[in-house]
Simulated assay, not measured.
Amino acid sequence: MQNKFAWISTPDELWEDKKEMITTALESGIDHVLDLDDIEQIRKLGNVKIIA
């Protein structure tokens, strides 16, 4: 089995507007999130690597 590398880039929106998208992505298997503004809030969602 190959290792996967999947990531999403978050939109430039308020945290409450993008939180659901990030949560859904994490539940779908995404393990990296590209975000420059809400690093601490993303870390609270689970085991995810943040690209900032």
Rank of each mutant, 00 (worst) to 15 (best):
2 Q>R: 14
3 N>M: 10
3 N>E: 12
4 K>I: 11
4 K>V: 11
4 K>A: 11
5 F>I: 08
6 A>K: 14
9 S>G: 10
9 S>K: 13
10 T>M: 00
10 T>R: 01
12 D>N: 15
13 E>L: 13
18 K>A: 10
20 E>A: 13
20 E>W: 05
20 E>C: 04
21 M>H: 07
22 I>K: 07
22 I>S: 04
22 I>M: 05
24 T>R: 14
24 T>F: 08
25 A>H: 04
26 L>N: 07
26 L>E: 07
27 E>G: 09
27 E>L: 06
27 E>C: 04
28 S>A: 14
28 S>T: 03
29 G>C: 03
29 G>Q: 03
31 D>S: 11
31 D>N: 07
32 H>Q: 11
33 V>Y: 00
35 D>Y: 00
36 L>Y: 14
37 D>R: 12
37 D>E: 11
37 D>Q: 10
38 D>H: 08
38 D>M: 01
39 I>N: 07
40 E>C: 09
40 E>L: 12
40 E>H: 09
41 Q>P: 01
43 R>C: 03
43 R>A: 02
44 K>P: 02
45 L>H: 05
45 L>D: 06
46 G>S: 07
46 G>K: 00
47 N>T: 12
47 N>C: 08
48 V>N: 06
48 V>F: 00
48 V>D: 03
48 V>M: 05
49 K>Y: 02
49 K>L: 00
51 I>A: 09
52 A>D: 03
